[in-house]
Every structure is written in C-alpha cells, then in structure tokens.
C-alpha cells in the first residue's frame, strides 16, 4: 500500500479502516473459536445413552426378571421367563398409560396404578386394562439381544 501520495484526511480514514478491520477480524475469530471450544468440551452426560433397539447381552439378563428399555420415545418391557425365554411388550398399560413392571412373586406383568395384570403373553388377565400389551420382537444375534417392532 503506497502511503506517501495520501492526504492526512485519507490517511486518517485508512487508519480508522485498519482498526475497524483488525478489530472486526479479532471479534470474528473469537466468534469462531468460542463455539469450537465449547463444542469440544465433553457435555455432562458424556456418552449417548444406550437405549432403544439394543438391550444388552443375553448372559447379563437374569431369568425371571423384567427390565424397562426405552424404544424411541416409548417404554418397552423385556421379560426373561423362568424357563429362559425372552419376551418383549409395550410397557404402556392399556388402561391409563402407566408404566408396567414385572412382578416376580405374582408371575405376571403388573401395573401399579390400578392393579392391572397381564400374563407373560401380554394378555390382560385381571383388572381394568381393556386390551393386551402390544408385542415386540426379540432378536438374538449371538449374545446380543435387540428389540424390534413386530412387523
């Protein structure tokens, strides 16, 4: 940039421009670096939660127990019967949408809200539920258990 032809006014403008550009560039760099650093900082929940389809290893699921697994936005109850079979049903009670649980001593899937009971085929056998629980498919790939919607 050739400066010795410039008038003092022009020179003043040039300096002002230099400052504005420099300052702007600095602000711009900050507006890039700050989000970048924030992004690179691991969030409090360090890892994505294992949920939905994958339900764990077969060897980790005990017989005669039931667990709730999150399938997308809905809860699914995965039951391993006393004889070792794996069953999965929607865990939303068909009465008023409470979340059901496996009751070992009763040998049924039980809803704590109004004492609804479902047998291990998902059929409503006692209490207010009007319909059985939707069944889900349990797929065994080696040791991995995964749950899928019943097609």
């Amino acid at each position: 940039m050739n400066e010795h032809n410039a008038s003092p006014r022009e020179q003043g403008k040039r300096d002002f421009l230099k400052y504005v550009l420099g300052g702007g560039l600095f602000a711009w760099v900050v507006s890039i670096v700050y989000p970048l650093l924030a992004y690179l900082t691991p969030p409090k929940q360090a890892e994505v939660e294992v949920n939905s389809v994958k339900a764990g290893k077969l060897s980790e699921i005990e017989r005669d127990t039931g667990t709730i697994v999150r399938f997308g936005n809905k809860p699914v109850i995965l039951v391993r019967t006393a004889s070792g079979e794996m069953r999965a049903f929607s865990a939303t009670c068909t009465h008023l949408d409470c979340t059901v649980q496996y009751q070992k001593d009763m040998g049924v899937i039980w809803c704590a809200c109004h004492n609804g009971k479902y047998d291990l085929n998902g059929r409503n056998v006692s209490g207010p539920p009007p319909r059985p629980l939707d069944e889900f498919k349990v797929i065994l790939q080696g040791e991995e258990v995964s749950i899928s919607k019943n097609a």
Binding site: L36, A38, T41, Q45
Partner: peptide
Amino acid sequence: SKVEFGWLI
C-alpha cells in the same frame, strides 16, 4: 441436543 453448539456444527 446435548453437545454445546452441536446443532450448529
């Protein structure tokens, strides 16, 4: 949803 500015990236 959880990573800061993750939505932006």
